[in-house]
Each structure stands twice: as C-alpha cells, then as structure tokens.
C-alpha cells in the first residue's frame, strides 16, 4: 500500500494571544517570532494515522507539501514521525488564496509518484481556516472522499478500508474501496513523539523537490478586506455577599433579560 500524507506548516496556533495581528493595508496576517512555524495539528494526526497503518499492514508513506523551502522542517517532522520519503512542490505562481490551484498542484505531484492507494490530509489548517484542499484534491484526483475521519483501519482484502466519519448528529462506520482521500480529525489518534534517532535520521534525509505546480485560476474568490476582530467584552460582574448570593443574583439578571 502506498499512502500519501499531504501536510502544511502553520504559525503555532497555541502562540500567546498578542503574537498575532492584522496588516489591514496589505490584507495579510502578521505574527511575532513567538509563533513558530509548526506542522499543522490535524496533519500530525494524519501522519500518525499513516504510521499506524504502516505498522499494522505494511505500507510506504510519502509526505507531500506544496510550499517553499521554509516548509522543509515540517516535512522532516513528518519523516521523523514515520513517513518514508518527503516531496516538496514549489507553490504555483500567483496562487494567492486559490485553494484549487494547491489541490491541482498536489494532484499533479501525486500522479508522478507510484500509484497512491490512500491520500490522508488533516481536515483543516489553522490560519485562514478554510479546509478546502482535501475535498478539492479528491475531486481533482477523481477519488472518493471521507471527512472528518476519526478512525481508519485497512480491511483484510487489502483493497478497502473501514472508517468512521462524523456526521451532523453522530458518526457513521463506512466501507470504502481504495483509492480514497480521507481528511482526519484529532479524535483519530494521539501523535507520537519522535525518537531522537528518528529525528536525526530525518535531518539527514533528502527531500525531493518536484515540479508540477499548476497555475492559479483567475476565477477564485478575491480577498477584498482583512480586519482584526475584537472579541473582548465589557464584563458586568454580579455582586453578592457569598457565591450562593451571586448565583441567585445571576439568575435574576438572566431571567430579567430573557436569557432563559
């Protein structure tokens, strides 16, 4: 089985609140150095899912990204966590926010690799918070698609998988023939910490840089404004002698204002 895991790097989503601001004129986000670039959280879970399938059934795992050389630490993190090889495709010129161009670029790179049986992605990347690429990639490749996936297991026939996907009001157990694109959610596993040995091996590994970026499409939606959003509120503190009194006073306010 050949598993391709599509990954990307994002500024640390757990970085302190003050490390992010918006450059409104440039319509771009800015981060202080405190927000280190990291492999996107859900992508780490996708890498772990691939590593588990490899351990259980045997597989070759390729980590793939469409990004500049600054994304190579993320690829090395994926190698340390169980991927066998890493491929980086330079981003398409002028892609801007065109996620379909990214999906086409990933698909073009996947087609140059040995046939992929399973393509795993994280369900969304922190940042622009779109989550379009996995679904678009499935369409471009012509593969069926499952998301958000919270469990995946290869079936004995070697040509299909059993997976769990979340629905509006619960979850479903689904059988899917390979090839398949699956976008995984964090419930699927607990990503392992790479061993020192695997980190050192990953540092020495060669990252393949491939051509294949597909030009952006002019019809993508155009970003016309980006502005910071102030979520802070003026908090009205409820008075009262004891905590019980304050609970009662809160009830009165909630009742009065029609909250209940």
């Amino acid at each position: 089985m050949h598993i391709v895991v599509c990954v990307c790097q994002v500024p640390d989503p757990q970085a302190p609140a003050g490390s992010f601001y918006v450059d409104e004129a440039a319509m771009e986000p800015r981060w202080s150095p405190a927000a280190q670039p990291l492999l996107s959280t859900f992508d780490l879970h996708a890498v772990e899912a691939a590593a588990c399938l490899k351990e259980a059934h045997g597989a070759t795992v390729t980590a793939l990204t469409v990004a500049g050389p600054e994304a190579e630490p993320g690829l090395r993190r994926a190698l340390a966590a169980g991927c066998d090889q890493a491929v980086r495709v330079a981003p398409p010129a002028g892609a801007g926010h065109d996620r379909l161009a990214i999906a086409h670029s990933l698909a073009a790179a996947i087609r140059t690799l040995p046939p992929a049986d399973l393509v795993l992605c994280g369900r969304i990347a922190a940042g622009w918070d779109m989550g379009h690429v996995p679904a678009m990639l499935a369409e471009v490749l012509g593969f069926p698609y499952a998301s958000p996936v919270t469990a995946i297991e290869a079936r004995d026939d070697g040509a299909s998988v059993e997976l769990r996907r979340l629905t509006v009001d619960g979850y479903e157990v689904v059988h899917a023939d390979l090839p398949l694109v699956a976008a995984v959610s964090n419930e699927i596993n607990e990503p392992r910490y790479p061993t020192m040995r695997s980190v050192l091996d990953a540092q020495r590994a060669t990252i393949t840089v491939a051509d294949g970026a597909v030009a952006a499409d002019a019809t993508a939606a155009r970003l016309t404004a980006l502005r910071p959003r102030d979520l802070s509120a003026e908090c009205e503190l409820i008075d009262g002698e004891t905590a019980e009194d304050r609970g009662m006073a809160l009830a009165a306010v909630m009742h009065e204002r029609g909250f209940v």
Binding site: P13, F20, V22, M27, P29, A126, G127, W128, D129, M130, A221, R222, L223, T224, A225, L226, R227, P228, R229, L231
Partner: peptide, 14 residues
Amino acid sequence: RPCFSAKALSDWSV
C-alpha cells in the same frame, strides 16, 4: 468569514 481563530474577519468577492 472569520479566520485566524476568529481573531480576524475577511471579505471575499465574486
């Protein structure tokens, strides 16, 4: 649409 963990709002046009 909100983005950047709801810390920003973005306008997109077609």
